[in-house]
Amino acid sequence: MLEKKIKRVTVIILDSVGVGELPDAADYGDTGSNTLANVAKAVKGLKLPNLGQLGLGNILDVEGVPPVPQPRAAYGKMAETSPGKDTTTGHWEMAGIILEKPFRTYPQGFPRELIEEFEKRIGRKSLGNVVASGTQIIEELGREHMSTGRPIVYTSADSVFQIAAHEEVIPLEELYRMCQIAREMLVDEHQVGRVIARPFLGQPGSFKRTSNRHDYAVTPPVPNLLVSLQEAGIKTMGVGKIYDIFAGQGVSEKVTTRDNMDGVDQTLRFMRTNPEGLIMANLVEYDSLYGHRNDARGYANALEDFDRRLPEILAAMLPQEVLLITADHGCDPTTPSTDHSREYVPLLVFGAPVKGGVNLGIRSSFADVAATLGDFFGVPFKTGTSFAPKILL
C-alpha cells in the first residue's frame, strides 16, 4: 500500500469501446472484433486529437489517431478475467469482483413457465419473449402493445430481461413495478445480470425510447471497491447507469443522464462541486445507439463528440486528481453481430500526480483498476494488481 493519497479520481467508462479481440474471443463468436480500430477503418479515419495526445494511438493502431512520441497519460489495455462480455460483468470486475461463471443468457427466449408466472404476477399477458434489438422490437410489436396493453418482453445475447412499454399505455410506475417483480423472480437457476425497463413514446412508425430507462441489477457481492471506499468515509458518485449496475451498493450519490453529452455535463458538475472522492461515469450511447445498431458512422461521431469535450474535463481536474478512461467490453458495429464482443479495453491514466508516457502493457484483469484506486485512496484492496507504483510521481 502506497502512502501517497490522491484526493479525487474520475473514472470515465466509454461503454463498449473495445480495442481488439481477447484470446478466447472465438469461444464467444467474436473473432475479428476490434471496435475502435474497425470503426476508424469504416469511416476512413477518426478525429480524436485530444485522446491521441493522451496516448490512445499508442495502445493500438487506429486510423487517424497516430501514436505520439510523448503521451500525456500512462497507457495500456486490460483483459477481462471473468467469463462473459456484458456490462455488469465488466463494471463489477473494475470494482474488484471476478465472476467464476457468467450470468445466464436465453438465446431462445425465456422458458414458457417463467413467462406464465411473470404474467400471473403482473396481472396481464405479455408480447414477444424473443431475442431482439430494442428499437426493432418496439417497431414490430408497438402497435399491438398499444392496442392490448401487454408489455413487450425480450432479451439479447447479454444476460438481460427487458420490458418495453409505451409511457402513455403503461405508466412508468407500473413498468417499474413489473421490473421489480421480474427481478424478484429471476434468481437461482434463472438469475440474469439485469432486468431493464425500456419505456418509449410516439406512434407506430415513429416510436422513440425515452431517457426513463431503469436497470435492476443483481446485488453485487462484497468485498468490492465501492463499498470499501464508502466504509472508509470516501464519497462515491455515479453518473449514468453506474448506480443501477451496482444496485445502489457502494454509491453515495447518483445522477441519471439523457445522453453522452449530458453524462459529460454531470461528470463536470460533480468535479466542480466535490473536491474529494470517486466519480465513476458511464457514457452509454456508443453501445446502446451505435454498437448494437451496427452504426459505425454514428459510433465515430460519438467518439469525436467526447474528444471535443475532453479539454473541459482536463481543465476541471484538481492538482491531486487522477482521470482514468476505459471501457467495459466491445460492441463492434462493423461485424454482422449486433451483440457485445469479447475484447480488451483501453486504459488511459492522466493527472498531475501521474507520469506521462508510461506503458502499462496488457493488464491481466479489469480488477487492476480496483487495486489501483485502493492505492490512490489509501484503502487496502487485495483483488487485482495495482499499477499505482508504476505511474505515481
Score class of each variant (00 low, 15 high):
residue 338 T to W: 08
residue 378 G to C: 08
residue 265 D to C: 02
residue 374 G to C: 11
residue 138 I to P: 03
residue 197 A to C: 02
residue 36 L to E: 00
residue 215 D to P: 00
residue 90 G to V: 05
residue 166 H to Q: 01
residue 225 L to S: 11
residue 165 A to M: 06
residue 247 A to L: 14
residue 354 V to N: 02
residue 388 A to E: 12
residue 264 V to T: 10
residue 116 E to W: 07
residue 208 K to T: 15
residue 33 S to R: 02
residue 336 P to M: 10
residue 127 L to C: 04
residue 372 T to C: 04
residue 208 K to F: 11
residue 391 I to A: 03
residue 198 R to P: 10
residue 184 E to C: 05
residue 28 Y to D: 03
residue 268 L to H: 10
residue 161 F to Q: 06
residue 356 G to T: 01
residue 295 D to E: 07
residue 313 I to A: 04
residue 47 K to D: 12
residue 58 N to D: 02
residue 107 P to G: 05
residue 205 G to R: 04
residue 97 I to G: 07
residue 209 R to W: 09
residue 32 G to P: 01
residue 149 G to L: 10
residue 64 G to M: 00
residue 278 L to F: 09
residue 384 G to F: 09
residue 89 T to M: 00
residue 134 G to Y: 06
residue 365 S to I: 01
residue 31 T to Q: 11
residue 112 R to W: 06
residue 136 Q to W: 13
residue 219 T to Q: 13
residue 10 T to M: 01
residue 373 L to A: 08
residue 379 V to G: 07
residue 338 T to F: 11
residue 323 L to G: 07
residue 6 I to K: 12
residue 274 N to E: 15
residue 321 E to A: 05
residue 118 F to G: 10
residue 384 G to V: 10
residue 159 S to K: 04
residue 356 G to C: 01
residue 57 G to H: 00
residue 151 P to R: 11
residue 390 K to C: 03
residue 350 F to Y: 15
residue 345 V to Y: 02
residue 201 L to K: 13
residue 283 L to M: 09
residue 54 L to N: 02
residue 367 A to L: 01
residue 352 A to Y: 01
residue 116 E to D: 14
residue 88 T to M: 03
residue 287 D to Y: 07
residue 85 K to V: 08
residue 199 P to I: 06
residue 130 V to T: 13
residue 196 I to P: 10
residue 59 I to T: 04
residue 144 E to T: 14
residue 8 R to A: 04
residue 355 K to T: 04
residue 94 M to D: 08
residue 343 E to G: 10
residue 372 T to F: 03
residue 107 P to R: 05
residue 69 P to N: 00
